[in-house]
Nucleic acid binder design. Structure first.
Length: 177
DNA sequence: ACCCCGATCGTA
DNA sequence: ACGATCGGGGTT
């Protein structure tokens, strides 16, 4: 199992977001399959952390694609993103939900970005990690399974930018193995 | 230095 | 509907 190539992330963020559905997310000995994501695109997106330009917190979003952007939210949860597009263009895909594949109890609830990182043990010590490197502890990999249908909807928990249907959820998901 | 509030979640 | 909990970013 090897990480997705950087070229996967170096594309328009909406394409990356859709194509991320069904992929495996691997951390330590845990594997989950991604079922819901959101896109945050550029400095014109009022819901993005990059809306007010480059700051210490958002510098990873302005960096090269394929790196992990991980931040603390509400003082107690972490959110995991994968940086997309090109260096100096801030964009990322937020991983919002997944389902357990291995290394976790089958009934583990991974529906929500905070739950997902908590159950996997992902924290901001991994912020900025290049997930495309061969031995990255955290990475995406192929699953050869695609959702039969994708729903596009408004993003969760934001005030501005709700007109963009940049949340993508896999439905009619193919059964595993 | 201060203040506000958030890409959330669990409980009421 | 609301509290927990704290760092970032804007303002003073």
């Amino acid at each position: 199992m090897q990480p997705l190539d950087r070229s996967f992330f170096a594309r328009p963020t909406l394409s990356v977001a859709r194509d991320t559905l069904g992929k495996y997310l691997i951390f330590a000995d845990k594997i989950v399959q991604i079922t819901e994501v959101e896109a945050y695109i550029g400095t014109e997106d009022p819901a993005s952390h990059a809306f007010h330009g480059l700051t210490p917190r958002t510098q990873v979003m302005f960096g090269p694609p394929g790196h992990a952007y991980i931040y603390l939210i509400y003082g107690m949860y972490h959110c995991l993103n994968f940086v997309t597009e090109t260096k100096d263009f801030p964009a990322a895909v937020l991983i919002r939900a997944a389902r357990p594949v291995s290394g976790l109890p089958v009934p583990t609830d991974l529906s929500g970005p905070g739950k997902l990182t908590r159950e996997l043990g992902i924290t901001r010590t991994l912020n900025g990690l290049d997930t495309c490197l061969p031995h990255s502890p955290l990475f995406l990999t192929e699953s050869h399974q695609k959702p039969t249908r994708i729903i596009a909807d408004s993003r969760i928990g934001i005030k501005n930018g709700r007109e963009h249907l940049w949340r993508f959820t896999a439905v009619d998901f193919l059964p595993l193995t």
